[in-house]
């Protein structure tokens, strides 16, 4: 591989994506370096979720390129398993497997996909559950957990694959306000450890606190981006200003 750590770990170049005649992404470019935390914000329907779903090939693209660690994602030849080992994803609706306990949810992919020995996987899974502060809930089923707890299990489940990049798709949007915080704290811990994170979020305060870089998207393009301070305090584009005035 030609990729080295001084090059972007995820490189999005002029990506175009449409659903039928509806063009959702009209040429978006973002570079993310290893260890960076970026937040993508913008009104609903601006294509932010679609963009990060393209990064791990859940959606295909019609133009441009996305590389992860130098490897083109939208390539027929691509080994999706290799990609998905590198890129973990957490969803808005948690999407835990309802018929498996918290621990089993975390262990499943390493066991079945990576085919690692059970003892190792279990040890790691227990450590991860502890890390997301859910000790004692190992044997609970998703239906027995609150939304925030389920979402933290989902994060642990993704981490169990030892990804290099984590994608968070509006992970707090479906949660009760009081449980949002526990999930954000978990993500913040992760960022502090140097995990590369790409977040789509509506939590502006959180974005400001945790992000290295903020991208504002609207109608399929990146309108404005910058480091949190300059972005929030010195936004120049009228669309950004309008959006910020509504959410802040």
């Amino acid at each position: 591989m030609s990729w080295s750590e001084d090059k972007p770990i995820v490189s999005i170049k002029d990506v175009k994506k449409s659903f039928g005649s509806l063009e959702v992404l009209k040429g978006v470019s973002i570079d993310i370096m290893k260890g960076e935390v970026i937040c993508i914000i913008g009104p609903s329907g601006s294509g932010k979720s679609t963009l990060i779903r393209c990064i791990n090939a859940l959606n295909d693209i019609q133009g441009g390129s996305i590389t992860v660690e130098g490897r083109e994602v939208h390539d027929e030849e691509l080994d999706k398993l290799e990609l998905r080992k590198k890129v973990g994803m957490v969803f808005q609706q948690y999407n835990l497997f309802p018929h498996k306990t918290a621990l089993q949810n975390v262990m499943m992919a390493p066991l079945k996909v990576l085919k690692e020995p059970k003892a190792d996987v279990e040890k790691r899974a227990r450590a991860l559950i502890k890390k997301v502060r859910l000790e004692g809930k190992e044997n609970s089923y998703p239906g027995e957990l609150s939304g925030g707890q389920q979402q933290r299990v989902a994060i642990a489940r993704s981490l169990a694959m030892r990804p290099d990049v984590m994608l968070f798709d509006e992970v707090t949007a479906a949660l009760d306000p009081e449980t949002v915080k526990e999930v954000l704290v978990t993500i913040k811990d992760l960022a502090a450890e140097g995990m590369t994170c790409i977040l789509v979020t509506h939590e502006m305060g959180f974005a400001r606190e945790v992000a290295d870089h903020i991208y504002f998207t609207d109608k399929g393009v990146i309108v404005e981006h910058g480091a949190p301070e300059e972005f929030f305090d010195k936004a120049s584009d009228p669309r950004t200003k309008e959006f910020l005035s509504q959410v802040l």
Binding site: R84, G88, M161
Partner: peptide, 23 residues
């Protein structure tokens, strides 16, 4: 079976057959 659950399984690297069998 909700599509999003199946998608989560793909996102974790499960193949189509594995998703069918395990999820």
């Amino acid at each position: 079976v909700p599509n999003s659950t199946i998608e989560a399984s793909y996102a974790m690297g499960f193949t189509r057959l594995q998703t069918y069998i395990y999820i």
